[in-house]
Write a protein that binds this DNA or RNA. Structure first.
Length: 265
DNA sequence: CGTGGCTCCTGGCGGC
DNA sequence: TGCCGCCAGGAGCCAC
């Protein structure tokens, strides 16, 4: 349930399973997931082509094709998207929405229980990002730019980190994690964060996302001092054992340690 | 510009 | 055991 680390793992998964193989069949069962393209277009573009390269921007997975009209298949995973590469048709995962069959008989499934995702095609990634109005990718962003954004935003820091139009890649869970590790209260106004804290926030943001990628984006593989495995109703702070608080910020469930991340007056 | 509410979907879980 | 309401790692839209 994909934020940046999960999507990065999906990218690696495509790299290790699905590149340079001719696509012989495409089946799309849920056209409502399509962006500004039709089912016929998608099938026509993919069929007889190969995936040649991959990239990632924020929470979007970009799969490069060798097609003269559409060079990129773009997958967004919503809250419940996943990928699976498998051989036998009978092993097709439940909730497969897009199924791609390769010449070698293997299949790649885009799975999505809830239909909150998107399948798209684009000739040009820069145009796509512009059309979606996405902010800079959080693993690419320079401190200079990060600083300019944070110091000019009047909304809460959690909202600022999570809003894909401001910066792209962070979702609810990692926003909480990054603020926890930096000891910032999630409701702090972004522009009220002091210089030193802001630098620390930037470093932690990158560090945490990279660590999550190294762990395969599996929550279980992350160190115990991460907040992630303690996100629960009776969870306790892994650093000071204080009972975690659960509140809503920007409508999203938020956990934080009231002792280490106190609200500033 | 920011916030809160509603909507799209569907499965899983806690409560009665 | 069964049903119900609520929640969820996303995000667009709209009113204020």
């Amino acid at each position: 349930m994909p934020e940046l680390p999960e999507v990065e793992i999906f990218k690696q998964y495509i790299d290790s399973t699905s590149l340079h193989k001719k696509i012989v069949n495409v089946d799309l069962t849920t056209p409502s997931l399509l962006g500004k393209i039709t089912k016929e277009q998608l099938i026509e573009v993919l069929k007889n082509q190969k995936f040649e390269k991959t990239d990632r921007y924020g929470k979007h997975l970009l799969v490069g094709l060798d097609h003269e009209l559409y060079l990129w298949l773009i997958l967004h995973f919503g809250m419940s998207g996943n990928l699976e590469y498998f051989k036998e048709s009978s092993d097709k995962p439940k909730y497969t929405k897009l199924l791609i069959e390769f010449e070698n008989g293997y299949h790649l499934a885009y799975i999505n229980i809830r239909k909150l995702g998107e399948i798209n095609l684009s000739k040009n990634i820069t145009d796509f990002i512009k059309a979606k109005d996405l902010g800079p990718d959080v693993l690419q962003i320079s401190y200079q730019k990060f600083r300019a954004i944070i110091s000019s935003r009047r909304g809460t820091i959690k909202y600022t980190l999570m809003n894909q139009h401001i910066m792209a890649g962070i979702g609810n869970v990692y926003a909480d994690e990054i603020l926890f590790q930096t000891a910032i209260n999630p409701e702090t106004k972004a522009n009220e964060i002091a210089e030193k804290k802001r630098e620390e926030l930037y470093d932690n943001m990158k560090k945490i996302l990279k660590k999550a990628i190294e762990a395969g984006a599996e929550f279980g593989g992350l160190p115990d001092w991460f907040l992630i495995s303690h996100r629960a109703n009776n969870g306790r702070c892994p650093k000071c054992n204080t009972k975690l608080k659960q509140i809503k910020v920007s409508g999203r469930t938020t956990y934080y340690c009231p002792n280490r991340q106190p609200k500033k007056k």
